[in-house]
């Protein structure tokens, strides 16, 4: 083939310069990220599994707990959810690197901060919705369970306490999100989460049990300990301060570092 451009018929259909003029709105990206959380097999089963678990937990509570109250349902449903939601937060971020979809995502939207922001919004939307559903399932279980067992229906969670539980679950999800942004690898971030959520609190707890000086400062340095108070509600000003300080150290600062790395790193 030795034809040159000159003697080839050129229709010029693509000689038109750049045509994209409007930037991609973040609201659209949030929709896209929500879709991406559900349209993979792992994401779909993680979130569907979480919903199924909450129903199973409700049924078990009806038959296993002799003193039914709303609190017992909330605790039973909240436990699996507090594991599932951070996982969803982790995978929303890490799959871009572990499954290498970032190659496409970050060429379609070069502003990585905008993508991560949309992921955060989508993650929190899923979290809030899931927790709201869990509260509703728990309420249904409480009404149906107490009727079934012939007990009085006991509502022992105040609105304020419900809000702090919401907040605690949201923080757990953010913790997963932060580890996803910081580690950018699915297995690594999941292991990291269990270290954060199980190993560290156990270590801090042991230290507090044997060292008086540590017990006095535990609230300031142990984020899981400080955020655990949210489940019981009625936090004092000092306990809120504990949460703010330990949250800054364990959540906000690592998240800022992770965001900086995401924006500057190479996507391969």
């Amino acid at each position: 083939m030795s034809t040159s451009v000159i003697d080839r018929p050129v229709s010029k259909a693509r000689v038109r310069g750049l045509r994209s003029t409007e930037t991609i709105p973040t609201s659209r990206l949030i929709g896209v990220e929500l879709q991406k959380m559900f349209n993979t097999r792992s994401g779909f089963w993680l979130l569907t599994g979480g919903a199924l678990l909450s129903v199973v937990a409700t049924i078990i509570t009806v038959f296993a707990d002799p003193d039914l109250s709303y609190g017992s349902f909330a605790a039973a449903i909240g436990a699996p959810l507090s594991i599932v939601l951070p996982m969803a937060g982790i995978l929303a971020v890490t799959s871009e690197w572990s499954q290498r979809t970032g190659l496409t995502t970050f060429t379609l939207v070069p502003h990585r901060g905008q993508v991560i922001g949309a992921k955060l919004a989508a993650t929190l939307l899923v979290g809030v919705t899931s927790i709201a559903i869990a509260f509703s399932v728990g309420a249904l279980g409480n009404v149906a369970g107490s009727a079934l067992m012939g007990q009085d229906t006991v509502w022992d969670i105040s609105v304020g306490n419900a809000l702090t539980i919401f907040f605690a679950d949201g923080l757990g999800m953010l913790m997963g999100f932060m580890l996803g942004v910081l580690i950018r690898n699915s297995p690594g971030a999941i292991v990291g989460y269990f270290v954060y959520a199980l190993v560290l609190p156990a270590a801090f707890g042991a230290l507090a049990a044997f060292q008086d000086w540590f017990e006095r400062i535990q609230g300031w340095v142990d984020f899981q300990f400080a955020s655990g108070q949210l489940y019981d509600g009625g936090l004092t000003a000092t306990e809120w301060a504990h949460l703010a300080v330990s949250g800054l150290v364990w959540l906000v600062i690592p998240l800022a570092v992770g965001l900086r790395l995401v924006v500057r790193s190479e996507v391969k």
């Binding site: 750049l18 045509r19 994209s20 003029t21 409007e22 930037t23 991609i24 993979t40 097999r41 792992s42 994401g43 799959s95 499954q99 290498r100 979809t101 970032g102 190659l103 496409t104 060429t107 379609l108 939207v109 070069p110 502003h111």
Partner: peptide
């Protein structure tokens, strides 16, 4: 490239066909 408002409409990119979510 990063200053294109909606780069997908201007540049078609295929860097690695295997870099997709397997699920």
């Amino acid at each position: 490239f990063a200053e294109l408002p909606n780069p997908g409409l201007d540049v078609g990119v295929l860097l690695d066909a295997s870099a997709q979510h397997a699920g």
